[in-house]
């Protein structure tokens, strides 16, 4: 079932055309990657999809409803965790619920059941600076999940992490995605990450950004998938589509 759809999105800033007729779909429960070079319009595309930036052409549909230029409908996790240092972890996580008018008590009660599955048990009353980098990302992801209506846009959420933490976070992320109902569109410039985490990958060419190819990652992701020939085949296909082979 199609949950999010972008139809013929175009966007320009002055003379510079950033996106040109970009169309993509996200089905329920899918994790779909958007891969592309830096400056290729990935973040602009997410700004349009999240509604904070109105496109010059095209529209965004969420479950068939036109949400073009309407922020607050599609949840968005930016590159930095952006946890507010002055709010306790629980209040950071609850922020989207508070913004929708829930009382602090209601919001905390709604968020409470997710702390354990998100690996954040016992952190509720801490401040963000008391968390490790990985935990901060999990808290930001939980905030994104609570803000979502089943759809989230993740803009390079693991790019700031070191290699070991990133690997742990990938495993954790795939585990938690099995327990929650969330469809994700993920921006990444890391080809390995895209293959490991996504069900499908869109290749976005740069200047102006347009969808160049779509690659389905349909092989089962076993424990040693990253070392398999299938993995290398996908990588070859993606690099070829990006013209980086």
């Amino acid at each position: 079932m199609e949950i999010l759809k972008a139809e013929q999105i175009s966007k320009r800033f002055g003379d510079k055309e950033v996106l040109q007729n970009v169309s993509l779909t996200l089905n329920a429960g899918e994790i779909v990657g958007v891969l592309g070079v830096s400056g290729g319009g990935k973040t602009t595309l997410f700004n349009v999809l999240s509604g904070v930036c109105a496109p010059d052409g095209g529209r965004v549909l969420l479950r068939g409803e036109d949400v073009t230029g309407k922020p607050g409908k599609v949840s968005y996790m930016l590159q930095k965790d952006l946890l507010f240092p002055y709010r306790r972890v629980v209040d950071n996580v609850c922020l989207p619920l508070t913004l929708r008018g829930m009382s602090r008590r209601e919001a905390r009660a709604a968020a409470e059941p997710y702390f354990e599955p998100f690996g954040l048990a016992g952190t509720q009353t801490l401040y963000p600076a008391q968390l490790s980098g990985g935990m901060r990302q999990r808290a930001a992801f939980l905030r994104t999940y609570l803000a979502s209506d089943g759809v989230a846009l993740l803009d390079e959420p693991f790019s700031a992490l070191d290699a070991i933490t990133k690997r742990t976070m990938h495993k954790w992320y795939l585990g938690v995605m099995r327990t929650i109902e969330l469809s994700v569109l993920l921006i990444t410039h890391d080809v390995d990450e895209a293959i490991l985490l996504c069900d499908r990958v869109y290749i976005l060419s740069g200047k102006p950004g347009e969808i160049r190819a779509q690659i389905r990652i349909d092989k089962e992701k076993t424990e040693d998938f990253a070392l398999s020939t299938d993995f290398l085949d996908y990588k070859r296909q993606i690099l070829a589509a990006m013209h980086l082979d």
Partner: peptide
Amino acid sequence: HLMRTMGA
């Protein structure tokens, strides 16, 4: 920007 994405 984050607040705006949350509809604030």
